[in-house]
Design a protein around this nucleic acid. Structure first.
Lengths: 195, 195, 195, 195
DNA sequence: TATGAATGAGATTTCATTCAT
DNA sequence: AATGAATGAAATCTCATTCAT
């Protein structure tokens, strides 16, 4: 197949965006790591930003697939929420997932075009919607106390975001951080019998 | 009199780092916004990275001061933790605080020198230590259930980080996000009487 | 059947050279407008310069044919000269003629090869020779005053060139420019009875 | 003076735009000919187009000054018109004038920005207005027959344009072309007593 | 004949930093 | 302390041309 070179380019780009961030990932670095001519990048992807968009969407697509798969077989809504969280954190440290693309490159700073930001936004929105629906399921089946599902989803995702950044970007994350995070979520969503 | 120009430069730098991030903040932009000669920048700060370090530390210093002030008068440890969280989130949206410097510029990507990263790290470490001590205080005074204070501190700070990023970087944050976040913390650290 | 693609390419090339000039007309643009594979261009025409030469000569050939047809049936030399001028100006604004190829691409800057410039030169020379012969005819039949036919031909053609550029390249040409130009020629070549 | 380098750059740019045209005049060529660092170009002029605009306006300003000087002392309108034409053609072959900048670079193709084209247009407009006023003066003092001054001015300028291009761009211009051109104008504007 | 992936030289532009004044 | 001209390395992007299929 002659798709090889395009694929090599794409993989190298995802690696480098994750290692160096958007700005410090250069055409030269990408083409050298992919073992491919410099010009092939614009030939296949038009420009750097479009390549980044493609990379980001690719990661997000796999992310969504993984989250859906992880949460669909849970026995109750609360378990589904916990499965979602676990899958989120697992994905974020899976070396195959190229998750760092989304961590080191901010789609909100590195993409100049509004259209492209909108595309990313809608994908991120789907992540939130998935969690919302799991929360609603939990309220339906009684495994979660009544609450504003959209609000709770945002807070839980915020926690995932922060835990992930602490782990992958800083040197001082405790080894148990992810487990602690999951327990924290569990404690917070635990329905309690009040007098 | 002559401190004026140095100060103007410093303020302009903090504004621009927060608006554009590290890479897109140029010497030209800074000197223009400050209404000051280009050469003054290296004259006063040596180079871009040192300027950024100074800006970041300045923001962090004010941050720590604010967190300490907010938490020191609480009536119990749990209240102190909540005051800490509230102060964190308030500071993050105070236009005077130049907090965005720390959000848009990652000290972990934008600072090449290990020494400088270490300086920042130690400051961030003090934030975590402060929260840890408040948690311990809570365990002492019985307002918080026994737990690993370091772990809990990291998780809570992770949540602050994520909530803040959601609010200031994305377009889809719910207006109630910060309040929801605080409630979430409250629910999670609520000591509960188990059978 | 297979001439179609070559023709489509040629037409697209003439359009684009006329619209964008030599440098800004790219292989990509041409092949896209023609709806044809990129590689066909070099396959059929060798390289960009040869394609341009072919395009320019094609336009010039039609131009010469039109000038000859327009001037051959005039009743006297002076009328033939005027018919020549009118045909020149008409051709220059005939959308079918692709005249702009010769206006926006300078054969004197855009063709590096001396041989190719010579080919173009000789064609342009034939235009001048045609006008010269019409002028001589006019001197023979008494409709034009004696003069240096080569000189007069060059001046008249210079006027055509300038009028044409004013009309097709600038935004400020008066609507009557071409008519005014013809009257100007008429006035200048009018034989006058001097005392 | 430290203006030296900026000036050297400007002169080199005018020379090269005149020799090679806009597109083939590169930053490298300019900085090398000026003996100056590459980056100085954008430092002083912002970008290539602005440099070209500055160069073109500089040439046009000198042009206008020369045309005004040449035509203001004529004894009658017709002489003023002829002095204008002679000054036009002289300027066009004065090696000091950098006239070729305007010949080889088309302000109508090479300037993308409408604003900049407008600035050039208005300068060209002043050339036409000057000639118009001379023609009107000629009609007033009786040295020229009544006519539409604007139309006549455009045609005469068109002839200057064409004669100039023939002389400086083609290899086949007769040595007497400029003299022939002036005579042609003289013949065309000669007021004649009709029966 | 037809396709379009692949190449790499070269162009414009940016920018931290230096330095003479 | 203050200025801004000057430098040149490096980045992104363009594009004619080649070539395997």
């Amino acid at each position: 197949m002659n798709t090889t070179k395009k694929t090599a380019l794409f993989t190298a780009a995802k690696e480098l965006f994750g290692e160096y961030g958007y700005v410090e990932t250069t055409f030269k670095k990408i083409s050298e790591r992919a073992g491919v001519a410099l010009g092939l990048l614009t030939h296949h992807y038009g420009n750097k930003e479009k390549l980044f968009l493609a990379a980001g969407l690719d990661v997000l697509d796999h992310f969504l697939t993984r989250l859906r798969a992880a949460s669909e077989n849970a026995t109750c809504g609360r378990d589904a929420v916990m499965a979602f969280c676990r899958a989120y954190l697992d994905f974020s440290i899976d070396p195959q997932s190229h998750w760092l693309v989304l961590v080191r490159c901010s789609p909100y700073s590195d993409m100049k075009t509004k259209t492209e930001r909108d595309i990313m936004d809608s994908k991120f929105g789907q992540v939130a919607q998935l969690l919302e629906s799991l929360i609603e399921q939990g309220m339906d089946d009684g495994s979660l106390a009544p609450c504003d599902s959209r609000s709770l989803a945002q807070v839980i995702i915020a926690l995932m975001v922060g835990a992930n950044r602490t782990r992958v970007l800083t040197p001082y994350a405790a080894p148990s951080l992810y487990e602690d995070t999951l327990q924290f979520v569990e404690a917070a969503i635990q329905p309690r019998q009040e007098a």
